[in-house]
Design a protein around this nucleic acid. Sequence first.
RNA 1: UUGACCGUCCACUCCACCGCUGGUCCACCCGAUCCCGAUCGGGGCGGGCAAGAGGAAAGUCCGGGCAACACAGGGCACCACGCCGGCUAACGGCCGGGGUCCCUUCCCCCCCGGGAAGGGGCACGGAAAGUGCAACAGAAAGCAAACCGCCCCGACCCCGCCCCGAUAGCUAUCGGGAUCGGAAUCGGGGUAAGGGUGAAACCGUGGGGUAAGAGCCCACGACUUCCCGUAGUAAUACGGGAUGGAGGUAAACCCCGUGGGUUGAAAUACCAAACAGCGUUCCAGCCUUUACGGAGGCUACGGCCGGCCCGGUCGGAUACAAGGAACGCGGGUAGGUAGAUAGAGCCGUCGGGCAACCGCCGGCCUAGAUAAAUGGUGGAGCGCCCCGUCGAUUACCGUCGGAGGGGCCGACAGAACCCGGCUUACCGGAACGGUCAACUUU
RNA 2: GCCGACGUAGCUCAGGGGUAGAGCACUUCCAUGGUAAGGAAGGGGUCGUGAGUUCAAAUCUCACCGUUGGCU
Length: 141
Amino acid sequence: MSQRFPTSERLKSRREIGRLFSPGTGSVAAYPVRLLYRWAESPRGDQACQITFVVPKRKFKRAVDRNLLKRRMREAYRLNRELLLPQGPGGQVPEVSAGARPPQLILLLMYTGKEALPYAVIERKVKKVLTQLGERLAAGG
RNA sequence: UUGACCGUCCACUCCACCGCUGGUCCACCCGAUCCCGAUCGGGGCGGGCAAGAGGAAAGUCCGGGCAACACAGGGCACCACGCCGGCUAACGGCCGGGGUCCCUUCCCCCCCGGGAAGGGGCACGGAAAGUGCAACAGAAAGCAAACCGCCCCGACCCCGCCCCGAUAGCUAUCGGGAUCGGAAUCGGGGUAAGGGUGAAACCGUGGGGUAAGAGCCCACGACUUCCCGUAGUAAUACGGGAUGGAGGUAAACCCCGUGGGUUGAAAUACCAAACAGCGUUCCAGCCUUUACGGAGGCUACGGCCGGCCCGGUCGGAUACAAGGAACGCGGGUAGGUAGAUAGAGCCGUCGGGCAACCGCCGGCCUAGAUAAAUGGUGGAGCGCCCCGUCGAUUACCGUCGGAGGGGCCGACAGAACCCGGCUUACCGGAACGGUCAACUUU
RNA sequence: GCCGACGUAGCUCAGGGGUAGAGCACUUCCAUGGUAAGGAAGGGGUCGUGAGUUCAAAUCUCACCGUUGGCU
């Protein structure tokens, strides 16, 4: 599948991001990352999935460090999306019945570690998290 | 030549693949308009092209632009700034000059004191407008006062000297007297030299003067304020004259001068789904008749009976009512657009200026994101650190050089409306210019 | 992005130019058969860091560092 990662697959609504931090959100964690997921309330675009990346300012005070970690997480997601979306980002999320409006999955990938880890470690953990979420959705979660 | 400092420039480099952001060109899809292939618009996707973080993007400490609101003028209050001149859009910034303090070196033989050169610091208006403050120590902390001391006067008493008288033999003792000298105590006064505290004690040295002393007077020197002259745009410096005796603190209140309206892009302007609200219109058609306003009928349809259908009944293009659709309205949410990237812009030649900087001409377009774009992987090189090894040198430590291995080694750090500064962080490198020092050669 | 506030003993806070304090906590002693309460004594401080003003700075000024609050 394509390894492109256009802006339309990024989660940009402040409202949806805020909802991700309220009750009812599922999460999968593998240190040093944690993946929050939820169904979108008002989907934007026709992508099956939108994602955003978060690094807390409390743990990384320099903007350079936060940018670097977000880039590493974003790169890991870009290269390993098919673990979660085997049919590609434009298709349907598996095991979801087709309604009038297909539901949209919104994701938030948070960096919970205290130190900046190299890309290889982050990619391994992101793979793990995406695999777990894919299994959970396939089981009807 | 070497070293130190300052200014200027750079901010690991290259290749391949996969990606990101805005722009532009091409192709396809979608929508609108004219109308049957064109125009316009926006979006998606694919491809091509060139571009894509900083010197501090940081802290948000100053100054502006820009925007909204407020505003007749003036004053008070509050805040900021403060040697002089210049630069600038402006500044608390920069440049040049002055003053002052500190450091280094040298000189006046040494000390003291002073001078010269170089470097560095300075929120450097006013303490002679007023109010306040100064712990402890000290006599006293601010304009005069007086603890010790010094000096004068008085009282009291003692001693010495002197005189007289008495007693014992001139000497000695006792009594009396009083000028003088001395000592202690008390009282009154003068003094500000000395004490010795303190961060700080009323100009320093010498002389005169005096009861003792004192800028009380004089000489020299230092200083304050004012005036004059010379140099300078000025701050100021030098010289002369007058004036005096005046401590510190204004990053204490304050006085003087200058400046400041307030709030900040989350400012502001525009477009505008959905839901809800309000308003208007419509919710068929057909037949007959007509004075063209209507009237009657059929049907669609609706209400009621009924679990539902059939059926019955009522109403019938209008209705008790409810709903729907279209259009419009205001507010303006989600969202979007502008603000927002061509500017106090950058580069270069020349010219002006000691410089900051300015001017002419020529050339260039150089990030515009919005949960927020520069990343990932692989390879090569460069630099740094560590490891052991080989060689050169050396008495050793070590230094230099070669090949090799290993480094979650590659400074500080990420634009968020834009500029000018300041401050703070920082591995290093390039070559040029300047200043200073040392050495060598001529 | 913008605008404020705060930093003093282990904790909570006073002190706003003149020898760093209070309450709680801690240590020792008294008292009790013992503990708590009570009483007495004591220890404990780079006053966030660095400069500057001043004779003198926790205090005034400036610059940094950290914590925290507000504005959509």
